[in-house]
């Protein structure tokens, strides 16, 4: 992956880890909250078993690929291997299940509430990024801010949303959306 053209390289860089990330988030076996720590533990062990030099090539790609693999493996393994996974397997109901869509509405509500606890500046930047799809640099231009402060504000926002969103919800958020 040593393209001379930096632009192509950047596209590759994103493509190479965004796709494993999507797989982790949207896989048929999207990981529930109670399993996330277990998955992380197993991913951690796998990371330890890899050569550091190999991981360094594209760490995010490895991270999300391992996470989606672990989730998939646990889903197909016998219940013995992962005794408490039955509950989230049964939670994987079809999309038009009424209970499911109700919980999606709850998710929306929860996310809205969490966003509203943030400062106006944080909300502005999040909206530009996640709704209008602007990159950090573009946000900086739009708001006449420095890229550095955009990154700082977004970092702070994510950490704070992570604390505010209900733990169970964070696991369920993407289940059944695809």
């Amino acid at each position: 992956m040593t393209h001379p053209d930096p632009k192509t390289r950047l596209t590759d860089w994103f493509r190479q880890w965004r796709s494993p990330l999507r797989k982790f988030l949207k896989g048929k076996r999207a990981v529930g909250a109670s399993d996330l720590d277990d998955v992380a533990q197993e991913v951690f062990l796998r990371l330890m078993r890899y050569e550091r030099t190999e991981l360094v090539e594209n760490p995010q790609a490895y991270l999300y690929k391992m996470a989606s693999n672990v989730a998939a493996e646990w889903a197909i393994r016998s219940p013995r291997a992962k005794p408490h996974d039955s509950h989230w397997l049964t939670g994987l109901t079809s999309d038009d299940d009424p209970e499911r869509s109700f919980s999606q509405r709850q998710v929306e509500e929860e996310v809205r509430r969490a966003i509203e606890t943030l400062a106006p500046r944080q909300r502005r930047m999040l909206k530009l990024h996640h709704f209008e799809g602007l990159e950090y640099g573009e946000i900086a231009q739009r708001l006449s801010a420095t890229p550095r402060s955009v990154k700082r504000v977004l970092t702070k926002s994510y950490a704070s949303l992570r604390q505010k969103l209900d733990a169970q919800l964070l696991g369920d958020i993407t289940d059944g959306r695809e």
Partner: peptide, 8 residues
């Protein structure tokens, strides 16, 4: 954090 971003 990946999940938070996905939620957004």
């Amino acid at each position: 954090i990946a999940k938070v971003n996905d939620a957004l």
